[in-house]
Amino acid sequence: MAVSLALILVTVLAGDPAPAPAPAPDVHVIDEKERIDLQQTDNVRLSLPTQSDRDAWASPGLRVQLGYAYGILQGTGPALSFRSKGAMFRPSVRLDEYWALGVAMLYGTGPNGQRWSVTAEPTFFPWRQVGITVGLGYGGLAISDPNASAGRLRGPDEIVSRDLNAGERLTSCEGSALSSLLRVENLFVSGALFATGPFAQVNFQWTRCQVSFGRIDQETGQQVLLTQWWRHNGATLGWWFAWR
C-alpha cells in the first residue's frame, strides 16, 4: 500500500494531467518479518560502473596528484649546484578531453636546507593520459654550501645592505623569485578513481639570494643583507599518484 501511495504522491506533486485509467499495479506487501530479514541480509550490491575508467579520467573534474621527484639543479655563475629529492602536490581541474589547469607545489631537499616552488600549469593531453605541461610560478631556495669555509665574505663588517660584486660569491642563499618548468607525464589508469605513472621535467629557477649577518641597519631598522642573483637549470624525474 505504501508503494501505491507513494506513486500517487509523485503524480500529484508533478501536477501531471490525469492520465488515462491504467491497470492497477500489483502491490507486493512486505511484512514485518521480511523487513527484519532484509535488514539483516549481508547480500549487499554496489552500482556497476556507468562509464569506463579511461573515459572517467578524461572527463572534466578535479584531480589530485601526489608525487615523488628526484632532480639535479645545475647552478650557473656563482650559484651552487646540487641534487634534490622532493615531494609534490598538484591539484588540478580537467577541463575537457585535452586540457587541464593545475597548480603544482614542490618541496625538496637542498644542501643544508630546502628548495620549493609553486607553479601554475596548463596541461595538454595529446593522447589518453599523456600530458605535456608548462608551468610558471614562484620558487625559492634556503641552502648553504657545506664545503664553504667560514669567513669568505666580510659579513660582520657590513653596515648597510648591498648587492654583491661580480667577483664575490655567497656561500649560502635564502630567497625566492621566478620558477618555470616543462613536464611530460603519463598516467596509467588503474581504476575510476586512481591512476599512477612517471613524469620527467626540466625546470629553471631564478633566485634573489639574500644573507643576513644578524646586524640591523640603525637607520632603517631592517636587517643588513647581502644580495646576489642565482640561476639554476634542472632536470627532474618522478612518479605521480593521482586521484580523481
Binding site: 648553504s144 669567513g151 649577518f213 640603525q218
Partner: peptide, 15 residues
Amino acid sequence: DVQQAQPSYPAWQLP
C-alpha cells in the same frame, strides 16, 4: 637601545 653598539655575527653562526 638601537644607538648602542651591536654585536655582529657571521652568517654561519647564530647569535
